[in-house]
Write a protein that binds this DNA or RNA. Structure first.
Lengths: 338, 338
DNA sequence: CTGAAAGCGCTTACAG
DNA sequence: CTGAAAGCGCTTACAG
């Protein structure tokens, strides 16, 4: 249980004051090259790492950002966090993780995040109500919405244009001669899913085709019943599902009923999880660059935090800069489509 | 951008000194009930949340623990983190997330974790070499191994007994009259997978049956080729795979060759990921209580951190207490077995 | 370019 | 049971 090296130890060994050691770390350009080299060498030798708490307290900056997510088990969260993490490391930030539980008061959750004294917040949320906006309006550090377009111009966001990619994909399937196109959505209204549905509807209406949306829960057993009931009545030419799991489940139910995929029914998922390639047939997917969303969100947050260090008056600038950044997507054609 | 409330503000409003406010928060039993109530009310009114950095600096405790994982995209990590998180909240701890990249020096990674001044570390690692042990030996805070039995008695661990569950499951399949049982393993040696293989081997040898292990990569395309090549030569009665994705992939390759699952070939996975129910047929799985591993790991770490606050002499006690805690598992029988 | 000193917001012996 | 004061390990104006 060895004692951690303190800045005093380094200063002593290098024959300088602790102020100089601190400067070497925080404003190296203000220190004479010769001194800097010497201090740096000692830092390395002794394995000195500044105490994060002391640093945070003195500088009012913690070089820590919070990731706030509703639940970590959602399919894409892991990849997004990985994107955030890699980007955060590049900028020297550390991650604090918060999972907001549905059953608890979001007010408490948010103030806990703030109290943890982070320099910025990456906020992933499937549905952002006005109440949420009010909640987070007084946050003393920059907030960036991840994978969820912010409808407020107070906060920036990084996301896929879900409306557009649903629109384009539906349109493509129409162009390929399909008319009966089903959209499978969650009962619960998530803002991303609402955008997907809107894009689908736009394409269908433009082509004069009938909009057909099947709502089901995320629960697999209920899904399967709903899907069976639906398929007893009719078989669409194409099914687009907001989640890969729903797409695969729909495909499995159809296959068991003797419906051939993709000959009679083509299926498309919206997430491109790793399991899209494990289904049989493999699943064609709209593939958002989830990793990129994470890493771009972090780098955007970094910019905002830089601005945040400036004085109050100048600060308005970044508020106005609040941008909704759109990240690319691909469509990966696999066996579930012709 | 409202100013955060400080302990001074609360003290002023409550007509007490800041020491008393601090006591209300940290040692409530030392404060007269009447005073305590009043202070508590003001704290609530003002929405006071102590500054985490200042608190950490003054008390030498940060009420933060680090989760160190090799890569977040592994199937079970999300659920484990959820378990850790829920348990951490219960004990009032916050989470700092570290992802160790294969390409970087583990020495640097670990010292970064320590510098972030956490009170304890939850260490998830697929393979722990002697070098790793040496690396982390001088960690100034308690470390608990998660999902990886520690072979050192310096550190405790929480895990499934992978050897045992592989043994029991193989034995069960033998009891059901199967003789040709294949074990599908990763080429890369992960300690958990080695334990699974050992359990399988023990059961096979006990029954005088031939051990048959197929090694493949985690890469799906390579898998499929390996599996095709294997199945061209022979079809086992049972295949046990260390990963669900490998099990499903093996099953899909077999199905495409016209082999009937489960009639001719039964398949069992080792993880029970959500996708076990999305495969067709659904996959029988050994189901470790991943969530429990996470939550028990955190609660065990809490104990160690409590001990860690005591004096050096007393400390040996917890070192000796370092336990390897075994968490339960289930076997969930689905369509891929008879 | 460097050092002495104040201060960041708390906690915790130490008196009383 | 409560307050005054020292101190946690840094950063950063302020002098020089």
């Amino acid at each position: 249980m060895s004692q951690q090296v303190k800045i005093y130890d380094v200063a002593g060994a290098a024959g300088v004051s602790l102020a100089t050691v601190s400067r070497v770390l925080n404003h190296p350009e203000k220190v004479k090259a010769e001194t800097r080299e010497r201090v740096l060498r000692i830092i390395k030798e002794k394995g000195y790492k500044p105490n994060a708490n002391a640093r945070g307290l003195a500088s009012k900056r913690s070089t820590t950002v919070a990731i706030v997510i509703p639940s970590i088990s959602r399919a894409s969260v892991a990849e997004m966090i990985e994107g955030i993490y890699d980007s955060a490391r590049k900028y020297g930030y550390t991650i604090r993780l918060f999972i907001t539980k549905d059953e608890e008061d979001p007010r408490d959750a948010w103030s806990e995040v703030i109290a943890s004294s982070v320099d910025g917040i990456l906020f992933m949320n499937d549905e952002t109500t006005d109440a949420t906006y009010k909640e987070i309006a007084h946050t003393p550090v920059p907030v960036v919405f991840v994978n969820n377009i912010s409808s407020s111009d107070e906060f920036g966001s990084i996301s896929i244009d879900y409306e557009e990619c649903a629109y384009q994909t539906t349109k493509e399937m129409i162009k390929r001669g399909n008319k009966k196109i089903l959209f499978i959505d969650t009962i619960h209204k998530y803002s991303a899913n609402e955008l997907k549905a809107a894009g689908y509807e736009r394409a269908m209406k433009e082509a004069g085709l009938e909009v057909d949306i099947l709502y089901s829960t995320g629960n697999l057993n209920i899904n399967q019943n709903d899907f069976k009931t639906y398929l007893d009545k009719k078989v669409p030419e194409v099914a687009l599902a907001v989640r890969d799991s729903m797409a695969i489940s729909f495909m499995n139910v159809a296959t068991k009923k003797g419906i051939k995929v993709p000959e009679q029914l083509q299926v498309i998922g919206f997430q491109n999880t790793r399991y899209a390639v494990l289904s049989n047939p493999t699943l064609t997917c709209i593939a958002p660059s989830i990793y990129d969303i994470g890493s771009r969100a972090m780098s955007y947050l970094t910019e905002m935090m830089k601005d945040d260090q400036k004085k109050e008056e100048e600060r308005d600038s970044y508020q106005k800069k609040a941008a909704n950044i759109i990240v690319d997507y691909d469509v990966i054609w696999r066996e579930s489509t012709k």
